[in-house]
Amino acid sequence: MANSSSNLSGKIQTVLGVLDPEKLGVTLSHEHLSLDSSALAWPWKEEKFASQVHTPVNLENLWWIQHNPYSNCANLRLFESEDAVLEEIKFFKSNGGCSIVENTVIGIRRNIKFYKQVAMETGVNIVSGTGFYVESSRPNTVSFTCEKMAEMMKSDILDGADGTDIKCGVIGEIGCSWPLRGSERRALQAAAHTSTETGCPIIIHPGRYHEAPTEIIRVIQEAGGDVQKVVMSHLDRTFQKKDDLLEFAKLGCYCEYDLFGIEQSHYQLNAAVDMPSDAQRIQWVKALIDEGYEDKITIGHDIHTKHRLMRFGGHGYSHILINIVPRMQSRGINKKSIDKMLVDNPKKWLTFK
């Protein structure tokens, strides 16, 4: 192997190589730069507006896509807009951004060569993920054993991913459904084993149910994983009650609010959930801080569709830095707490044990 877990200890691994944690800087902990999730498109069964399913994303149909983002196939092919992403990451850099965790894994078309290109052309540190997305996205890997999954993850971290020498620095996002499916459970177990062996951090995409995050943590713990190295993503759309959130926070993993920029309350993937606004996300984050969990919060946008890019009328990767940070300050969240969410917590999480 070209690398070993021993010489990664105390370091962060980016697509350009090993990084001193002190150089990580302002970090978005959950984003995508290039992916294809069109295979997971939400079926559109009504004849009315059926023509919108296969139309290109533009300002003329944005009114429909904003409410039905997962039913327009072109919207789910972010890889078609890599030039727009590259320009946005340059803009992110100009606004004080330093690093991005890229969470695309098997099932949604990782492009690790492009992530390296972005890092080289923008100067932004890119940490790429290894692992497996939800079972329905990857029919060819459903039969894989836990051992095979772990072997593949370890190779991505120590040798290089997708036939390259570009190495991954985070396990995930590991995709989980509700209820948790067999292959997803094995992926979680493999993530725990790989993390224990290599020291690599983990990030999770939980199922869309309030009990899902706790179940996932239990699986990871039972497999010997270190919960302190785990980020639980998408809590924006998972917990609807403060008591549930605070009870979960006691488990010790990082709590992530990573859908900043989505101001559409209707959540197409789970109509029973009212998606919070950015103002409400700030309130949830403040609640965690007020209860003593400021060392366990990470944030991001989880941009994974075209309509959230600036070119298509969206908020873009700089939204948190330009808009959310000032709003947090106006709502009583001090600079120290903001720096923890954007700098200190990502640094601690991403540093290999």
Rank of each mutant, 00 (worst) to 15 (best):
T305D: 08
L78Y: 04
M120S: 15
H315T: 14
E247M: 02
R218S: 12
P56D: 02
C146G: 05
H315P: 03
G129W: 11
D274I: 15
R237W: 03
E291F: 06
V273G: 00
I100G: 11
R218M: 00
V230H: 04
A271N: 14
R218Q: 10
L24V: 07
D295I: 00
Q13Y: 03
M341E: 13
I203A: 11
G169M: 07
M152R: 10
I203Q: 14
I174Y: 09
L235S: 05
I12S: 03
L251C: 11
K250P: 02
K113R: 13
D20R: 14
L62K: 15
S6R: 09
T198Q: 12
N95L: 12
Q13N: 11
M341D: 13
K116D: 00
H319R: 05
G332C: 03
E121R: 15
H301M: 14
V127E: 01
V219N: 04
M152D: 15
A190K: 07
G169H: 01
L86I: 05
G169Y: 02
E47A: 07
S128F: 09
E147L: 10
I108Y: 02
L235H: 11
I216M: 14
S9K: 15
I289G: 01
H307S: 12
D344L: 15
I204Q: 11
I216D: 09
M310I: 15
K286W: 02
N270E: 00
T145P: 03
L342N: 10
I65D: 03
L245Q: 04
G131V: 02
W42K: 10
T14K: 06
I202C: 01
G17I: 13
H301N: 15
Q268I: 06
E211C: 06
S195T: 03
